[in-house]
């Protein structure tokens, strides 16, 4: 179970980077994932540079394979980020979708 306090602290930061546009600096597609992400695999992860130059990592969702390229424009959205146990607090966080 992920610490609810860690989720709570994290969510305050997440709020600041939602709904922001940016460009993909580099990407990869994860096929062999850790426990918390197993059910989402395979999934792409991107490193995005936002318009304000801040760099953020996140999964890329609602994509086509042609979207997986350096320079692709994306926007940050809210999604569930890891699967916790049935009893734990739900972790919401930032992912990206292609524009």
């Amino acid at each position: 179970m992920i610490s609810p306090i860690k989720i709570w602290r994290r969510q305050k930061e997440i709020r600041k980077i939602l709904g922001k546009k940016g460009k993909v600096l580099v990407w990869t597609k994860i096929y062999m994932a850790g426990s918390d992400f197993k059910k989402y695999a395979p999934y792409p992860v991107v490193l995005v540079e936002l318009e304000n130059k801040e760099k953020i990592y996140g999964q890329l969702v609602d994509y086509r394979d042609t979207d997986l390229k350096i320079g692709k424009e994306v926007i940050s959205i809210l999604r569930k980020v890891r699967s916790s146990t049935d009893e734990g607090v739900i972790a919401y966080g930032v992912k990206f979708k292609p524009l």
């Binding site: 939602l18 609602d62 999604r79 569930k80």
Partner: peptide, 16 residues
Amino acid sequence: AGIDEDSLTMAFESAS
């Protein structure tokens, strides 16, 4: 809805 979407994430989209 996608595997990582739920009523809250969708509400955030419509409310935004």
